[in-house]
Design a protein around this nucleic acid. Structure first.
Lengths: 145, 145
DNA sequence: TATTGTTATACTCTATAACTATA
DNA sequence: TATAGTTATAGAGTATAACAATA
């Protein structure tokens, strides 16, 4: 449980500011790499959320990425029009539709990931161990309440 | 210097995905807290970039936050209309204008920071030491090339 | 009645290009 | 000529509300 010292608040302030600028840099990097594949940032993020084998309900993806379900329909449409993903109605509840990446989609995901890893983003200056540490911290930040 | 092992690429992929979702959560938290003070997310971010005593050229702020200078003018206008900041032309180069927070602005920055710290964001589940570690890592990520 | 996804629409955000004033 | 900031404007992104299908 987080404590409440003056040092603590200093760190929170600083981390919030750093997250804002880190996100600005990552957004630029991400948008440029996605554009290489004629993908909007939103389309790229949705694809990355579809790890191989994973299929998620539309609402779950929208929630995870912070998009409104209404505008998420159009993103799914474009990805489907490009034959990268398809909608699969859930047999148990036919209201919900899962988005699954097909072979073309998975291939493009791999290519996009490779370009994102290639450098130029804010992660370029971190070592293997630092990335491992960052992964652990962000993972805990995301699984919290 | 980052190495190039298979484990390394796994971590990069995972950290990128985590940064995307962390940012989604932080953006929602940030937008909600800023709205409490009738601030747009952009206006809030600009204010947080103006730590006490610090004054930055408009272009430097825009670059840091990833905004285009053209749309940044309007953000500065609104903050100035609300009497939170003012433009100070640089005596050495009268083309550049520094944004400085006045007394009202600094007070609002403190209140906004307090609300952001109050919890509900993705940082709530991290301990003091973890925040310190995250700060170090993000700091290095941002000062890199 | 409540929920998932969809549609239509309005609103906000962001980028492009042309302009000014300084250098 | 080049750069910081501004303006006008078009385009992309986002949210709101009403609707259909399913639960």
């Amino acid at each position: 449980m987080p404590d409440d010292s003056a040092l603590h608040t200093d760190h929170v302030d600083e981390v919030i500011a750093l997250l804002v600028t880190t996100n600005a840099r990552m957004s630029q990097h991400f948008a440029a790499r996605a554009a290489e594949f004629d993908l909007s940032p939103a389309e790229g993020k949705v694809l990355l959320a579809l790890e191989p084998g994973r299929s998620l309900p539309m609402r779950a993806i929208a929630r995870k990425l912070g998009y409104d379900p209404s505008n998420f329909t159009g993103v799914a449409d474009k990805l489907e029009d490009r034959d990268l993903v398809s909608r699969h109605p859930d047999p148990d509840d036919r209201r919900v539709k899962a988005i699954v990446a097909n072979e073309h989609g998975l291939e493009l995901i791999e290519q996009l990931s490779k370009r994102l890893r290639a450098g130029g983003g804010p992660l370029s200056s971190l070592s293997h161990d630092q990335l491992r540490g960052l992964r652990t911290l962000l993972d805990q930040a995301n699984t919290g309440p």
